[in-house]
Design a protein around this nucleic acid. Structure first.
Lengths: 194, 194
DNA sequence: ATAATAACCAACCGCTCGGTATGTTGCAAG
DNA sequence: CTTGCAACATACCGAGCGGTTGGTTATTAT
């Protein structure tokens, strides 16, 4: 990787972390510059504006991360158990910072979806991809599932509940409420089976 | 009501609307002053700081509003149906601004819970009160419900899913995803019955 | 009549923000 | 040897922010 590309990647990584911790608007470019030990000129050489940097973080850091994380548990033999194991593992492995900072995608959705169309469309696209992953997995084992299930609806329900659960962990500052909601979610997911 | 109290209430009402629309941090005091047609001195006579104004909005506007809204459907004869009717009516009556702006409590939780302890504790208290309302209602009709239900867990699950659903409506800018998640949530809630 | 207080107003302050304009350096092509 | 561009660095700008300061007015108590 060239020096320039290295610089760019470094900016993206640091910016992704800052946005995750403080949200997009509260993220200060000067903090990113300090952490990267570069000047403002360098940043504006690679990105035309703060919001374009935000878009790049979304597309080049968050999106691949999410698709990768969700792909694994949904492509195992039994995606119902895969999903439950995945969610349960999440409650256990969740770091303190993740309890406090929440999910990057959900955070950006809450903060930016209603003020910036660029973010909104990217978030929507990501949510649809995530939902499609779940729908595909459910359809693959539809023979084992209850009849009359609306797969897309189920998918969005799961994602919505997970987001709501991270929200609860933010205010309680511990995993307990999160774990309870996930436990109930797993009961719901397992009840999808015949 | 005295003139001073009238002024104070006016500030609270306008601030509640601004915070709902733009979040706490992005809410500008000068906008509130313009809308109220008062000076900055007037605002700082009634409130010692921006964050104290935020706390007052939470306690004197959002909290009573929430407790009132949730109390009705949970104290009818059949709280299961009351809840489902309440949620379904919400999807229908939801105004355009509510689709875009989301739930004030959830918004503040996402934005402020991890940066300000004062907000965090107030939000947590509110969520616990909300959960208690649900738990009380479920316990009241526990004879009609499945055995081995963890009422508190169920309560937080419902609240979490509702919050996640409003989040989805923000990015999609329509009610469809919200309605789907609520429909699935009602299926879950009705399945609590024996 | 006067003193005090409640309820405001107008002007200003320091600070941080995103963004820009200009200057510098190293390397590579001709 | 020098020209040119990529890849930065430095210094500065205007705007908006929350908050403070020093009045002003009207009402009330003495």
């Amino acid at each position: 990787m060239s020096d320039a590309e290295q610089t760019r990647q470094n900016i993206l990584t640091v910016a992704a972390d800052e946005i995750h911790q403080h949200g997009f608007k509260a993220t200060s470019l000067s903090v990113i510059l300090n952490r990267c030990e570069i000047s403002k000129g360098a940043l504006y050489y690679h990105f035309t504006s703060k919001i374009e940097l935000g878009y790049a973080v979304f597309e080049e850091v968050y999106t691949p991360m999410f698709l990768n994380v969700w792909h694994t548990p949904l492509t195992v033999d039994d995606p119902i158990e895969g999903l439950c194991d995945f969610l349960t593992a999440m409650t256990e492995e969740m770091s303190c910072s993740e309890v406090v900072c929440g999910c990057p995608l959900n955070n950006l959705c809450e903060e930016m979806a209603n003020v910036d169309e660029g973010f909104r469309l990217r978030i929507l696209c990501m949510q649809e991809q995530l939902n499609q992953l779940i729908v595909d997995a459910l359809e693959r084992v539809s023979g084992d599932l209850r009849d009359n299930l609306a797969f897309s609806q189920v998918g969005y329900f799961i994602v919505a509940t997970l987001n709501g659960a991270t929200s609860l962990s933010k205010s309680s500052r511990n995993k307990l409420l999160f774990q309870q909601v996930i436990a109930e979610l797993c009961l719901y997911i397992r009840a999808l089976k015949k």
